[in-house]
Design a protein around this nucleic acid. Structure first.
Lengths: 211, 211
DNA sequence: TTTTTTATACCTATAGTTAGGTATTTTTAA
DNA sequence: TTAAAAATACCTAACTATAGGTATAAAAAA
């Protein structure tokens, strides 16, 4: 690549957001080249063929989950810097993004200054947050107490079926498993969420936005 | 006022959204003049001194609630056309906006074509929706079929305790009732929601925003 | 390549829920 | 004030979930 400009990618399903970001980045058009994508998959296939210095990644895309996408990006191109971008003011989401290799997190209410500042910081290898995101990170209130249970794919699947009111036996049939296996997963879910029955489990899952 | 261009106002607390909208409106810059505001109050004071033909109004502003703002706008300047703008795909929210005098509703994932089309339609006095908003309005499923189960105070109380994972016996003790009575209420809840177990019941209640 | 995690499957009891009723008293609304 | 709705309480039997384990193979991660 003969390009010496920094390449920024924007991944967001809202054309309006893409245009907004481009517009906010315009003053620095001399140093940044921007490309944009409305689907996570599109960006991944682009990334496997091109270099990208930094990506502004919406974490709530229609096709893939932002956390997963972030992992994939870091796998394909570890030096691409990922900044999470979202409306969600969920501490847990921010932490998850960082855990998956993101270099920071911006809320969609960023000002132009913040945006440009954060991009610069991130490009220099720093972890960075938009003002409001910083504030949220700054209050450890919920984090300490409300730890997010990390669940496996199978567990997620079973959780969803439980939410549909299905019994262990019905789930076993549906997934071609032994009811005993389903029961084990179910018990593991109860343990992970530190709850004692399905009702509590579902409410906890709803609260953690897993359902 | 000697202005013959149509005056569009954008009210949104996200600079990015404002820039995005302006950018999407650019092809029509010859006919539209745009002004933007990040606070509802700011816009109201502008409106009392200036004419505005149409306003794109974010319904989730930090200072005032979108519904209230819409009412105020229509009170101050009845001929200003209001289009609701939001991420929320809540049917009820859309209906509320219309009830308060809005001429339509756009989701923030609108494409440029939709945006320009909807603005034109609204300016011609029509009620208009973005594609996805239309889809949501188009399914009477939830409104018609999924009638909100009306539950009694006692039932609500028991529903909440069930959501906390409490057993019939525990609820009975807490409410100084016979377990058999609690059981009857529980059964009535299952019937009203047309579900067959507590898991499904809770999910239905969450969906109907009863929990 | 070794270790850890995930997914699979099993066992024994006990606890709790659901389905099918009926029936009386107290509130609330017409 | 009278009818309807809500809250109370009971019964039996069948079904389902939970608690307390153990164990092994297959994936993923280190």
């Amino acid at each position: 690549m003969q390009q010496d400009k920094t390449i920024l990618a924007i991944v967001d399903d809202h054309p309006m957001v893409i245009e907004g970001l481009k517009s906010l980045l315009k003053p620095e058009a001399a140093i940044y080249t921007t490309v944009s994508f409305t689907r996570g998959r599109e960006f991944i296939s682009f990334l496997s063929q091109n270099e990208v210095d930094l990506v502004l990644l919406d974490i709530s895309l229609p096709d893939v989950n932002g956390i997963e996408l972030c992992k994939e990006i870091k796998k394909i191109s570890p030096k691409t810097i990922v900044l999470g971008l979202s409306n969600q003011t969920e501490r847990s989401m921010m932490l998850q993004m960082l855990q998956c290799g993101a270099s920071g997190y911006l809320l969609k209410n960023v000002s132009q200054d913040e945006l440009l500042g954060c991009i610069q910081e991130a490009l220099h290898g720093l972890i960075t947050f938009s003002r409001e995101a910083k504030e949220i990170m700054g209050r450890p209130s919920k984090a300490g107490l409300n730890e997010v249970a990390s669940i496996t794919k199978r567990e997620k699947q079973i959780l969803e079926l439980l939410a549909q009111g299905k019994t262990t036996a019905a789930i076993a049939t549906e997934l071609f498993l032994s009811p005993l296996t389903v029961d084990t997963h179910r018990k593991n879910l109860l343990q992970k969420f530190e709850v004692k029955n399905t009702a509590e489990l579902l409410m906890a899952a709803v609260q953690q936005k897993l359902l």
